[in-house]
Write a protein that binds this DNA or RNA. Structure first.
Lengths: 236, 236
DNA sequence: CTGCCTAATATTGTATACAATTGAAATTCG
DNA sequence: CGAATTTCAATTGTATACAATATTAGGCAG
């Protein structure tokens, strides 16, 4: 117990539960698990060869970060964000990310730029690739850019908040996204990093706000199909 | 299921666990439970007349919001924030609260002002009262002002982030606070609300930043006594 | 008397068993 | 034939039992 303990949010909870949580989380963020899908404790437990006890712990953690909805005596479901929720997620991102960018700029080093460039290149590579698998990876890569910026701040709390916001954004995009996010999204990421590298932090902030606006504008929030009755009907 | 469901973060988890979580949480925030205190599953369970199962769920939730530290095979303890953690908490608050204030101003109505005034009056009342119990209530009341501002935004995610930040701030103040927070803290709250009522949002933001600076300045972060070995020795 | 090693105790991690609640199918009555 | 009610199956909520790990106490050698 010498080095660790610096990242307070890195609470191990339980070994097995942490793994299950990570796997399900990734599946949700990459849209392999559709919103509304039932996550039966028995099924999940059987899948991972563990008892319901540990599955419950994982589902509870996911519920806390808004990726899973737990209904009493009914079980856990992949979250199905409402329009109001979606708007709150992006409002919160607009509130946090410019400040996050300024804070990242204060800690910025050359190696960080290199890391960011590598992420952009990966994103670029995926954009030109075809197939659903590439599309999934692209969604994740897009979020990773924002998470990398959060990591630069060295602020574990901020990182966790962003973790949650990015994951939930992915869910929202999965539900309400119209076009593929890529086209505009990737170019904007590049512009933000460019501005950051030039030292023009305020320009980067402005670009970031526009970027978030664009993501939200690409959503089709008109759909009132977020009626839980209808939803149940469709999925059963 | 007509009205509810609007607050997505209000996941019920478990009935019993939720209650235990709330009680322990309040005890930590009000400093009745000292940082570092062991929270044995058996003891807590006996106290609430429930099995370890439900206690674990509560402790896990508390761990997720940083109020409790869970060490593998060792159990749960009331969190003992490091200096680095404390700095991150306040850095995050400085990043969020000005934006939160602007967002609150957009939704501000007369009834909100009345609510805020009532909170300030309560804070004032507690300030003039003597005794440890009043001091505890004062710490909580001070946080409530910030939480009320978050509530005005109507953004449930933002509210949850602030919930966590305020709770952890209370812990930090409990550990590192020198003087009683009240004297300067309360007057500053009043100034912020005054500026808000006048419609001068930017002034309110400036005051808020200064306010957070003052809270942090009142901490004695020099103390390197955050050595877990020493801590164990002292508490046993 | 001090330091280390071993054994016992206590606490957590996980699985299983039982109770309670929900959802649906089947049956009965209008 | 349709609607309401009752019964049954499945799933979650909670408690308990067992396994693994850590801490503490005791003994032994130096």
């Amino acid at each position: 117990m010498t080095t660790a303990n610096l990242a307070p949010a890195e609470n191990a909870i339980d070994t097995g539960a942490q793994h299950i949580r990570d796997v399900i989380r990734e599946a949700i963020v990459e849209r392999r698990l559709a919103p509304g899908t039932k996550l039966s404790e028995n099924d999940v437990g059987g899948l991972f060869n563990v008892s319901r006890t540990v599955v419950r712990a994982a589902l509870q953690a996911l519920s806390y970060e808004g990726l899973v909805t737990v209904e009493k005596n009914r079980g856990a479901f992949v979250a199905y964000p409402s329009v109001a929720e979606a708007q709150q997620i992006f409002a919160t991102r607009r509130l946090i990310e410019p400040g996050l960018l300024r804070e990242a700029a204060r800690h910025l080093e050359k190696r960080h730029i290199k890391e960011l460039r590598a992420l952009l290149a990966e994103e670029d590579r995926l954009t030109s690739e075809r197939g659903q698998s590439a599309r999934r990876a692209e969604i994740k890569a897009s979020g990773d850019v924002h998470l990398a910026l959060a990591a630069i701040t060295g602020n574990a709390i901020l990182q966790r908040f962003m973790d949650e916001l990015i994951a939930r954004s992915s869910l929202v995009i999965a539900l309400y996204g119209q076009s593929v996010v890529s086209s505009c999204g990737h170019a904007e990421h590049q512009q933000i990093i460019d501005a950051l590298e030039k030292g023009d932090v305020e320009a980067a902030c402005t670009l970031m706000l526009k970027h978030i606006d664009h993501i939200e504008a690409d959503l089709d929030l008109r759909t009132t199909k977020r009626d839980s009755n209808l939803k149940d009907a469709l999925l059963l």
